[in-house]
Amino acid sequence: MSTTIPDVAMFMLALAAAIAFVRLLRGPSLPDRVVAMDLLGTLTVGLLVVGAAASAQRAFLDAAIIIALIGFVSNIAYARFIERRGQ
């Protein structure tokens, strides 16, 4: 089985997720971690979108829609939490 372009793109996205994880672990403040989580969510959506084409499974696109939606709502919730908690 040879390496195809979607494989390369998915490897780069996984590498990006690993790099974003560094900020999630290290981030000095809570908003840093929230930003890293947001980026991880976006990378997951991208991975699903490429995976949908690579495996010809259209259902991955529905999962991508749901994850994008949950990411937005959780971001707003985190922001409310940070603002209310103070400091």
């Binding site: 780069m12 996205l13 590498l15 990006a16 997720a17 790099i19 900020r23 890293a36 980026l39 990378l43």
Partner: peptide, 10 residues
């Protein structure tokens, strides 16, 4: 671009 975003975040 996604990889650049991750590098930028770090």
């Amino acid at each position: 671009f996604a990889l650049l975003a991750a590098i930028g975040v770090v």
